[in-house]
Design a protein around this nucleic acid. Sequence first.
DNA 1: CGAAATATATCATTAAGTGATATATGTGTC
DNA 2: GACACATATATCACTTAATGATATATTTCG
Lengths: 111, 111
Amino acid sequence: MARNRSLEMGELTDTAYYILLCFVQENHGYVVMQAVEEMTNGQFSIGPASLYSTIQKLQSADLIEITELGDKKKKTYRATGKGIELLKQEVERRRDMVQHAEEILKSAGEL
Amino acid sequence: MARNRSLEMGELTDTAYYILLCFVQENHGYVVMQAVEEMTNGQFSIGPASLYSTIQKLQSADLIEITELGDKKKKTYRATGKGIELLKQEVERRRDMVQHAEEILKSAGEL
DNA sequence: CGAAATATATCATTAAGTGATATATGTGTC
DNA sequence: GACACATATATCACTTAATGATATATTTCG
């Protein structure tokens, strides 16, 4: 859902949502690719190009931050307070999307 | 989320999701703009450019069909069987996305 | 050592979303 | 009947998001 200027608008695309979610815990970028694949049983996957370009955007928007650990060669990231807040908001928005659909499908006899 | 080739991959962007949802009931395209605005209390909105370009894509993918009514001047659309199935699947995917986030946020003490 | 997994990065391209704008029809009202 | 306003559809040019392909270190372990 490449919704235009989604971060500026306070919206997360599915890709950004999953990446931000993985950084609620301090993690390497690489972990995201595996974790999302596993979480969704392969339904959704994020490749390196999407991963690292989205990480840069999340960082610019101050939603994640680099957390330098002992060794300087690997980078780890963690969601900022602002990132956590946006994530919660976006969880809520998706919950609403599910509810909207349930109502309409139900009243059409499709559920 | 402008997830690339989302329709081919069997995924709906948020925009496509809401448009398809509005066509569970037979409706004019125009209704979508108002209904989404109202449903989401203005949080999410779809302009004419997004609306009609997405309608064309949904139609090409056989997810909605034109239903010619009495007067030939207005077009109404309705989700196809295939469209309803994909919509249900995408509702489920979003439900999962919410659940994934709840688990991680909860175990991080953020919920 | 050598292979495989881990980890990060960039380039060029495709797809999605949008702002701006145009146009026609319908409805009510003064 | 003229005017304003909402309804309804459409397209162009542009920006942003996502990706495929590819490259390159580093680490782990047999």
